[in-house]
Each structure stands twice: as structure tokens, then as C-alpha cells.
Amino acid sequence: MTLNDLIASMAMELHDAETPAETADTIASYARLSVAADGAGLMVVRGGAVETIADTSDDIEAAHQLQAELGEGPCLAALEGGDATYLVRDTRADERWPRWGRAAADIGFHSVISSTLETSTRRIGSLNVYARGVDAFDDDDAAVISWLATHASVAIANVTEREGLRTALSHRTVIGQAEGLLMSSFGIDADQAFAYLKRLSQDTNTKLVKIAAEIIENTDQLGRHEPAL
């Protein structure tokens, strides 16, 4: 399969991916194939913690976790900014991240390419490929991964937005159902029902959608606790 064929195939699979997890797995798989790497993975930061959202093998996640623990490494550097793409030809000899480089070599990875995943509005993470041999990648390989990272960033942003919209619509449906139950049970209007849900949410420090779900699950108890409006 040529690089053009591989890119076309990846584009089709990304189009069909329905969740961020499926999208990330697809990107990792094709990144590995595109430069004949031994493994690939995607790293992001969530809640201040480094997280691997896709990997083609367990030792990829281990290599990522080492960077989080040591506070250095090409994947972390690409994630945090700086150069868009980092090429490591020999992890044990590379002086930019000496502690991580030695640790990565010890688990069997000697060559790495890391490229930033970002859109015009936000940084998402990093796309990373690994090889067990020294000097396994060159500048052309780095350019391929950089190109893939650009298109992967758009795919991740799009599927994340769709997922967010689906979640928002689902939450609206649950809240609407709870409002309807309150209206029919207590003879109140929609504004009063929503105000009651909102007050419960604030008083109990509980998300509005969770309050709504609990009301739906406990419909038989509604008549016992008429809301104070």
C-alpha cells in the first residue's frame, strides 16, 4: 500500500469513526503503518494529568508514562508546545531528554517521532511513533507524521465536538423529561419546574442532569414531596 493509498484509507475510517476513542485508535494505527514504526500512540493532558488515549501496544503507554513521571521527553515537549515535531534518532544518546531517553531505551525504544496535535484554537496533545532500532526514522518520516498530525487534529476536534453535542442533547432530553413529570405531578409550568430543578442542583451541589435523572428514576415518590415554589 502506497502512502497515498494509506492516507485515503485513513480518511475513510476517520469519517466513519463515531467516538473520540475510535478516532484516536484509527490515527495511532495509521501513524504506525505510515512510517513502518513498531508502535504509535496519542498523548493528551486531562485535568492536569498526562493520559494516553490510544496506543498500539502496552509498552507505548509505558513510554508515555515515563515522560509524565520524569517531566521530560519528546511527546511531552510536543504536547506542551515548542517545535511542532521532534525527531529522536537514538533515545539513549539524545541529550535533550537524557533521563527519559535512557529509560525508553531500556524498554526497547530507540527512535521516536513526536508531533503536536492542535487546531487554530487549541492544543490537543501529541501524536507519537516509536521504533526499536536506532536511526529508524529520518526527516521524511518526520514530515509524514507532521502532516498526519495536522489532519488528525481536525478529525479529533470534529468528533469531540459531535460527541459534546450528542451529550448536550441527551442532557436536554433528560432535563425535559424531569420538567414534564414535575409539571404533570404538581400542576406547575415549565419555568417553575426548571427553577425547582436548578434550586435542587444548587442546594445539593449536584449536576442538574443528575438531579433530573433521579427524579425520573423515582417518579413514584414525586407526590410525597411537593416542591416549594
Rank of each mutant, 00 (worst) to 15 (best):
2 T>E: 12
23 T>L: 01
61 E>C: 09
104 A>D: 00
52 T>M: 05
72 E>Y: 01
31 A>V: 05
56 T>Q: 08
11 A>W: 06
96 R>P: 01
35 V>N: 02
76 L>D: 02
69 E>D: 10
22 E>F: 03
58 D>W: 08
73 G>E: 00
97 W>D: 08
48 G>A: 02
82 G>D: 11
36 A>M: 10
97 W>R: 10
37 A>K: 05
10 M>P: 03
69 E>S: 06
13 E>V: 14
78 A>V: 04
27 I>R: 02
64 H>L: 03
36 A>Y: 08
82 G>Q: 10
6 L>V: 13
81 G>H: 14
106 D>A: 14
57 S>Y: 09
82 G>K: 12
41 G>Q: 04
32 R>L: 13
40 A>T: 10
50 V>G: 09
73 G>T: 01
14 L>N: 00
58 D>Y: 10
67 Q>S: 01
100 W>V: 08
12 M>I: 15
34 S>N: 01
41 G>T: 07
97 W>I: 10
42 L>F: 09
14 L>R: 00
71 G>D: 01
98 P>G: 05
93 A>L: 11
84 A>P: 09
76 L>K: 07
87 L>Y: 00
69 E>I: 07
102 R>Q: 12
71 G>N: 02
6 L>Y: 14
43 M>W: 04
92 R>K: 08
62 A>S: 12
49 A>M: 11
